[in-house]
Design a protein around this nucleic acid. Structure first.
Lengths: 357, 357
DNA sequence: TTGTAGGCGTTATCAC
DNA sequence: GTGATAACGCCTACAA
């Protein structure tokens, strides 16, 4: 591989000068080969090779053409997290599928929560943003929406005028709870994901539930509440425990906390499969049998959990990614504020059963 | 969110004009707040808000500063594939970790194999490329190396003068084979990943083995050969079957093919865990017990396979990503051609045992 | 603390 | 089929 020497790197202009032709001609050699005599084009390419000219500079081209050839992805977590969460990975797969076929790059924007340094968002050379499951008032998202490029949001938040891809979280959640109610469960515990942007773990009171900055969690809790109240269970007696980090460890420790708050529960509802897996781990550690002693139900339908027999609510995560990608690529993006709601599927597993008495 | 109206979008220049100050002042307001009286800065920001100026254009800034704030990732597959292969996901996690802390974006470059359209690579606005496990003569990689930015390669290919992160594939592979030899296996079959850029499945002769375009596979096969020949087994009697797609289905069909070539084998060696899992699936389908009837061994140490008890050679995939990222960010990148070789660990599982006779 | 002005490397437009 | 010219939007010496 020829590394350029000490002389300044070749540019389109210097190539043109060297050849005694105009810059237009060199530009055409690359972008419009048919506008050129084959002979001249060959001469240009030969000189390019000789001078080590790597072809038109992408940034300069972008400036001129006003397109970056990439879309940016925004997450509520560090980028590396995206590769640790199975649901996020599945979403990314779907999104990448659409990027692939549109031949567009996917830029993972480093928007580390906490340090609210907008620079990475304002400075991302992209033709649009896809935001995946962010809180209602995220500064990175605000910055992205302020840029003059289209945006698509997946799951949350809902922003008027901005495309949204999601599911009916409240209905799905209610359905989950109904399943338990039907089995006969009345005393249950709930383990949910973070409800706000600041690191906080612990029991959640009604006020915090209703004011959650993450509306997906808000809706899921509301759905559970509906189901249990419809069954005559007082919702405020049900312990709800929140975890900031979305990991199995969080699920395990939250399970312990829920059990401490009400040792008599017969089921644990987790608002995600990752948490549910942690819950089960903790129950097993305590010699509790699932589902004989305690039932466990999750949400998401991630592959590994479903294979392991978790009862859960499956959502089409990869499809979410595809739809988000399609909305982004769709030329008719003038029609903004579109909304796509995808269906969910209840997946009965081997982790729920009637409570024993 | 204020959407700009019909007038041309605000620029730094138009903002300056509006305010009756120079462009420098506006630029400073964004990039060097301390060079400005707080009052003036406030005026600038206020006007920006009023005019819907989203801040300096990232592309124009990149052109001027000659940095893109992102690194590009090149794969031998479609981008979406990266999210389907556990090893690739782990690598990406490690790489993303470093990108996060360096506050640098990660651009997944759409380099679809087959359609050798270099444009996405030449047109990627990045400060460097990381290539993950590509064939020896990949045109995308060639294009990337031709760009005047640093590059780091993970696993393959080896390119003189370019940083490389990898493992000792031959030694690790030999160690795997030794394990089987020690258990007493002499008739085995091998299932390996693609050896060339064109779609091809089937048995592999010695010539193809030695000329494989993917040197990782080449080394792994060579390591196996060494081990078996040292044990007095004629390598050319051992069936080796290649699969282009890296999926469990491939592993399964390859297992069937290997068994057809030599029904008497007592063990199957797969050069990846994904393939190994497929191999086991096929064996189970045929009512063969693993390891009692046939032993199976994999390579990679992906989490799900290790948990499932697969005997395998674990490589530190996430660390590979981290090291690749660090090499990329390392300012001392003038010293190119660095090489990092990471250690592997043999993981005995429940899928290998002595052959029965 | 603020302003002047040149140039980063390219492509679109239009003329020849 | 080829060339001249004018942006694209910004940064940064340098000067005031």
């Amino acid at each position: 591989m020829e590394r350029h020497g000490s002389r300044p790197p070749a540019t389109l202009a210097s190539l043109a000068a060297e050849l005694g032709v105009s810059r237009t001609t060199v530009s055409n050699a690359y972008n419009r080969p048919d506008q050129l005599s084959p002979r001249l084009r060959a001469r240009v390419m030969e000189a390019a090779r000789r001078l080590g000219y790597p072809g038109p500079d992408p940034v300069a081209r972008s400036l001129r053409t006003r397109t970056a050839g990439a879309i940016g992805l925004l997450l509520a977590e560090q980028v590396s997290y995206a590769f640790r969460d199975p649901a996020a990975v599945a979403f990314l797969e779907g999104l990448a599928l659409e990027c692939d076929s549109a031949r567009v790059g996917l830029l993972l924007v480093p928007a580390t929560p906490g340090s609210d340094d907008i620079a990475a968002v304002s400075g991302a050379a992209v033709d649009g943003f896809v935001a995946y499951s962010m809180p209602d008032d995220d500064p990175y998202l605000t910055a992205a929406l302020g840029r003059p490029v289209p945006a698509v949001i997946c799951d949350q938040p809902f922003v008027p005028g901005v495309d949204l891809v999601g599911i009916d979280d409240r209905a799905a959640s209610r359905q989950m709870a109904d399943h338990l109610v039907r089995l006969g469960h009345r005393r249950v515990g709930v383990v949910c994901m973070r409800l706000g942007r600041v690191n906080r773990d612990g029991p959640v009171d009604l006020v915090r539930q209703e004011n959650a900055r993450y509306h997906v969690q808000r809706h899921r809790l509301a759905g559970l509440r509906q189901a249990f109240e419809a069954a005559g269970v007082a919702w405020d007696r049900i312990p709800v425990v929140e975890r900031f980090d979305h990991t199995e460890d969080s699920g395990a420790s939250a399970a312990a906390e829920v059990l401490a708050l009400d040792p008599g529960i017969t089921a644990v509802i987790a608002t995600s499969d990752v948490l549910a897996v942690g819950v089960i781990r903790e129950l097993v550690r305590r010699q509790q049998r699932v589902p004989q002693d305690v039932s466990v139900i999750g949400f998401d339908g991630i592959a590994s959990a479903v294979e392991a027999g978790l009862t859960t609510m499956e959502q089409p995560v990869t499809d979410k990614g595809r739809h988000a990608g399609r909305l982004m690529m769709d030329p008719a993006r003038s029609a903004q504020g579109r909304r796509i709601t995808l269906p969910t599927t209840f997946v009965p597993g081997r982790t729920t059963a009637a409570p024993r008495h």
